[in-house]
Design a binder for these strands. Structure first.
Length: 1093
RNA sequence: GGGCGCGUAGCUCAGGGGUUAGAGCACUCGCCUGAUAAGCGAGAGGUCGGUGGUUCGAUUCCACCCGCGCCCA
């Protein structure tokens, strides 16, 4: 009698009362009518099952319950596991990348829920930004800033608002169909008033901390659409085209200095002569060699390397001396044009040393117009030289340069050149052909132009970000110091303003009269109401721009406070998501503080520069905290040729079709167990064969085990029960008990392994544990225990009960442990077995109820290896398994531990007898296998001799557990003894050569007969199956067979009848009726007919 | 040009200073089966990208090179 313990631990499923021993075959008590299990289809349609499961989830509101029933607090501490959903931009259909992220966004929270945590999952929508605007421009047929202003910002933004949500239904379909649980009802949108107010609060916080400033930035600019373009736009395929431009080499007269041989000119080369009126500096490379040359009466300076290029212009020159650029730095020169001559007082017209200067093009001296070049601007700002931008929004010169006022800059080139030539400062005027970026909408050349922008001064706290980053667990680990760490180290100030329309407004109001400067920054609706008398119901343009008030600092009362026109970079909003989704700090103050930072987020690896980064910037600046503790950055899904997935090329399987043919669980298995999860790319074949394989490998075996259980349980009228006897006492009294304990212990190891992998966020590692378990369950436990399940009423009822309960316990436990990995199929199986509402409401399996016995698991796994070795001998000797053999001999240094398993091995190898021995001489000779990893470091250079001697068998056993080889004594653990099997022996090694299996391959007449009998049984079974008989049907057999087979059947008639549920076996007495077939019986042809009895 | 990742069987990928480098798929051959042929096993298939170096020993560590991807400039 087994000791039964009450369910232990908080997560045990309550068991029905156990009544032992079970007496009747039906195993139900009269008071408790048998409830059959739902029939498990043998050829399940998984997509259909998934849809049914999803229907149940929806109907029963399981997701909401799975969140709600977990307490928010446990023992005074937060019990929440905080997950942030990175908002996707819904202005397009989801693709595999989104599905991958979605699976992980589902898997980890499901697991943490089972671990007892409350895991809120709110869906977020990213609504603002340039993609939304471009989409609307296309749909509305307007192009660029000019058109939009003419069309009306109000109407334009209204269109954006609708357009960005166009695909939300498709998103919801895919997200739901993939089995991802996320709350769409209680979602957040970055365009919600509450979200935008929190963003405004964040801006004000940064402003108050002095981390926001206004400054210039040079951007590609299209005068045709009167707007800067993003890098994204300039990189479109067709934006670069060939163009002819003038190239001018001009002379700048240095201010005289002692030691000059006379007036000296520095040369500079430019392809944009129109920028020369805005020249404020020259740049030289500090390490570059420059030549001071005399040419007639004048002196010129240019890079030594450029002398050859100007051979014609410099004909007859003489090099006076060479000097490093560093020696030129600091010298001043005469402005080329008079327009900004007064800037000399502010430090302009100096020679600056700059590392970006090269000598490849031009003369090694760069003319700098900080308003029109990025390097120019950065260098000038670093040297405190002011910026001038005498070009208006339409690309025309302003009144600051009167001779060119109103002229388009490119059209002004000839005029500028003419004026300079007239003054004799042009050394060379040439024409070059180069690739130049063009506006993709109007095909006009772009210019680079400084525009006013708002910045977050990231450079001031980037060291703190680097410091904080150390606390984050990055998956894969190299991202922490690699991609992300480097990005942080090189962080530059963040331009957060966009000169656009559809976005959160920059909450800054400025005086429109520079004589009465004033600047107000707002951090809440209330503050706006205080100053403007209205509380906005919408913060979008143009409404927000209409809030104008007199400048309180202007005694004349004429100047007005007007909002700066820009909107915020939409990345500022995604970075604000942790607090803005909660409308913090206006609401949910405590809730936010409890839920920050997040425990977990996941996105693809490029978000190191996107969302991961903006979260980090804002959480560091606002809260001096990391924004998330654990992060998975997954790789990119590509096609099998590593090309990007492209709608146009159709180089990927249709996701909807995959979901509808293979199913979401198979797709989840395929994607999440892939190298994507360690940051690698996934090359996905178009034919989706990998997904079919995932189904076969990951889903079907579980279903088959479940299907087996329900088939026989329903026949037997048995309901499975959880085996709850304590881990220590689970029965090992016989072979069946050993198998039970083995598979239960194996199950425990699986659950523990899964938890360990999932806790480490090693998702592929978790999936990788599963197939080995399936193999042990299906192809070892169930296969060997099959007779226990179909044993009739005359058999051992307790043994039968144990088999059912063991399998039931495994299936229920595994369904739970795999629930995060395969949410649908586990739900169906769990529901069918337990009748409980949802596996996702269950706790993670409590393995303390299962035996912990690694020794048994290891031994049994070795037994499986022995049997595989034995069967491989049969195969090589062409001895079919059904043919019994006399004897198996197993040789192993610790052979004794195999004794309890001999019955199992004999049965599996179909042999009559067995011998266990440690005597290696029976099968061959002993071979020394040195454990090089241990001995190598110990003996060092002597290793070579040790290895050579051991290979040649030159070693001696000292008889005390040590060996001597090449003069070295090796102790336990430093070597293994392996068996070199003798030639001609029917043997196979196992345990890495430590053991050997030998089969007696002599076949006598008796064995032959028994083999035929078994072949015959097999033939009958196949015929039964082909004829569609039930496994319980009784039959009559008639057969016509050769004489020797008839003898065999006569000798084993009772066995044959019992095995085939035959009430009659008629051999060679004529009159074959019913399903008559010709069957091949191991090379002999027979006639067989069976009928239902 | 710089950074990060990668290069292992026909394909997709593990692995890792140690004798004989693994898995799945595909291929060939075979096997069990009163759940599962979408099962199980065996075989064949590899100068572990190249060249040098460190080491008793390198596919693994180091350097350089070649090739691929991503990012930055």
């Amino acid at each position: 009698m087994l000791r039964r313990l009450p369910p232990s631990g908080p997560s045990s499923v309550p068991d029905p009362p156990v009544s032992l021993p079970v007496q009747d075959a039906a195993m139900t008590t009269p008071s408790e009518p048998f409830r059959p299990y739902p029939a498990a289809e043998p050829n399940p349609d998984f997509p259909r099952i998934e849809e049914e499961v999803q229907e149940t989830w929806k109907r029963e509101r399981i997701f909401a319950e799975s969140v709600d029933f977990r307490p928010a607090d446990a023992q005074g501490r937060s019990n929440e596991y905080v997950f942030y959903d990175g908002p996707p931009f819904a202005n397009g259909l989801p693709h595999y990348g989104h599905l991958v992220t979605g699976f992980v966004k589902d898997l980890v929270p499901r697991y943490q829920t089972m671990r007892g945590h409350k895991v809120q999952r709110r869906f977020g929508w990213d609504c603002h930004g340039l993609p939304a605007e471009l989409q609307s421009e296309k749909e509305l047929g307007v192009s660029g800033r000019h058109d939009i202003l003419a069309y009306g910002i109000d109407k334009f933004n209204e269109h954006c608002k609708v357009s960005v949500l166009r695909f939300t239904h498709e998103w919801e379909y895919y997200v739901t169909r993939q089995g991802r649980w996320v709350d769409f009802q209680n979602d957040y949108k970055t365009m919600d008033l509450s979200f935008m107010e929190s963003v405004m609060w964040a801006f004000k916080q940064l402003w108050d901390k002095g981390l926001v400033y206004e400054g210039y930035r040079v951007v590609p600019y299209s005068w045709a659409v009167q707007s800067p373009l993003s890098n994204f736009e300039t990189r479109l395929d067709n934006s670069y085209r060939e163009r002819q431009d003038p190239a001018l080499t001009v002379k700048f007269r240095l201010d005289p200095r002692d030691g000059d041989p006379g007036p000296v000119d520095m040369l500079a080369w430019t392809t944009t002569p129109w920028t020369l009126p805005s020249n404020l500096a020259l740049a030289v490379g500090p390490e570059i060699d420059y030549a001071l040359v005399r040419l007639g009466d004048s002196h010129l300076i240019l890079a030594e390397a450029a002398l050859g290029k100007y051979a014609k212009e410099l004909e007859g020159h003489e090099v006076v001396r060479t000097l490093k650029g560093a020696e030129l730095a600091g010298r001043t020169y005469q402005p080329l044009f008079p327009f900004f001559a007064d800037k000399a007082k502010e430090g302009a017209f100096r020679v600056l040393a700059a590392d970006f200067v090269a000598t490849g093009d031009g003369v090694g001296i760069v003319h700098m117009a900080p308003g029109f070049g990025e390097d120019d601007l950065n260098t000038c700002v670093a040297n405190d030289i002011p910026v001038v931008v005498p070009v208006d929004v339409a690309g025309k010169f302003t009144s600051e340069v009167p001779p060119y006022e109103g002229v388009n800059v490119i059209e002004a080139n000839p005029q500028v050149i003419k004026d300079l030539k007239a003054r004799g400062v042009v050394l060379r005027h040439e024409t070059i052909v180069h690739n130049y970026p063009h506006c993709w909408r109007t095909d006009t050349p772009l210019i680079y132009k400084a525009v006013n922008s708002w910045y977050v001064e990231v450079s001031r706290f980037k060291d703190r970000m680097v410091e904080l980053n150390k606390q984050i667990n990055w998956i894969p680990g190299h991202v922490k110091d690699g991609l992300f760490g480097n990005w942080l180290e090189n962080a530059r100030d963040w331009n957060i303003s966009r000169n656009r329309f559809w976005g959160a407004p920059i909450p800054v109001w400025k005086s429109d009269d520079p004589r009465y400067p004033r600047l107000d920054v707002y951090g809440s609706l209330e503050e706006i109401e205080r100053d403007f008398g209205v509380k906005p119901a919408d913060l979008h343009r143009p409404g927000i721009d209409q809030l104008v008030r007199p400048n309180p600092d202007d005694p004349t009362g004429k100047s007005m406070m007007r909002r700066v026109e820009d909107v915020l970079d939409c990345w500022f909003e995604s970075g604000s998501m942790p607090f803005a989704q909660l409308h913090y700090p206006f609401e949910n103050k405590a809730r936010f503080e409890q839920n920050f930072p997040a425990d977990f987020i996941v996105e693809y690896v490029a978000q190191t520069r996107g969302w991961f980064y903006t979260l980090m910037v804002l959480s560091t600046a606002l809260f001096d905290s990391i924004p998330f503790k654990n992060v998975i950055c997954h790789g990119v899904v590509l096609d099998e040729h590593k090309q990007k997935l492209s709608k146009r090329l159709r180089n990927y399987p249709d996701p909807q079709e995959v979901l509808n043919t293979q199913g979401a669980d198979a797709l989840r298995w395929y994607l999440v167990s892939s190298p994507l999860m360690v940051g690698g790319d996934l090359a996905m074949p178009k034919d989706a064969r990998g997904i079919a394989q995932a189904l076969r490998q990951g889903v079907l075996p579980l279903w088959n085990a479940y299907s087996f259980f329900t088939l026989y349980a329903n026949i037997d009228g048995i309901r499975g029960r959880m085996r709850t006897e304590s881990a220590e006492t689970a029965s090992t009294r016989d072979q069946a008990g050993v198998l039970d304990r083995y598979i239960l212990a194996k199950t425990r190891e699986l659950v523990e392994g899964l938890a360990e992998r999932l806790d480490a966020y090693d998702l592929p590692g978790a999936y990788a544990l599963v197939p080995g378990y399936y193999d042990a369950l299906n192809n070892w436990y169930i296969r060997l225990c099959r007779p226990r399940f179909w044993r009739g009423a005359e058999g051992d009822a307790q043994d039968k009960r144990n088999a059912y309960d063991t399998l039931y316990t495994c299936l229920v436990t595994v369904a739970k442990a795999l629930a995060p990995l395969l949410p649908h199929v586990t739900e169906r199986i769990h529901a069918a077995l337990t009748g409980e509402k949802s596996v996702h409401l269950a706790d993670w399996p409590d393995v303390s109820a299962l035996p912990s016995d690694h020794t048994l698991v290891a031994e049994m796994d070795l037994v499986r290896e022995i049997c595989a070795a034995g069967l491989s001998i049969r195969e090589s000797k062409k001895l079919r398994t059904r043919l019994p053999l006399r004897e198996v001999t197993i040789i192993h240094p610790d052979a004794g531990f195999l004794d309890p398993y001999l019955g199992l091995i004999k049965q599996e190898l179909n042999v009559k007898g067995s011998t266990l021995t440690t005597d290696i001489a029976k099968a061959g000779t002993r071979q020394l296998a040195v454990n090089a990893a241990i001995v190598g470091p110990k003996v060092g250079p002597a290793m070579k001799a040790v290895m050579a001697a051991s290979k040649q068998g030159q070693w001696t056993d000292r008889g005390d557990g040590t060996v001597e080889v090449a003069g070295q004594i090796l102790g336990p653990g430093e070597f293994d003894i392996r068996i070199q099997t003798r030639e001609g022996l029917s043997a196979a090694r196992f345990a890495a050569g430590k053991g050997v299996v030998v089969l007696d391959t002599q076949v006598d007449a008796e064995l032959e007969k028994e083999g035929w009998a078994r072949d015959f049984v097999r033939a009958v079974q196949q015929t039964r199956k082909d004829a569609g008989f039930q496994v319980t049907d009784r039959i009559r057999i008639a057969a016509t067979v050769p004489a020797e087979v008839a003898e065999a059947l006569a000798a084993h008639a009772e066995t044959v009848k019992r095995e085939t549920l035959a009430v009659e076996l008629a051999v060679n007495d004529g009159g074959l009726t019913g399903a008559c077939t010709q069957v091949d019986l191991s090379g002999t042809s027979i006639q067989l007919a069976i009928t239902k009895a």
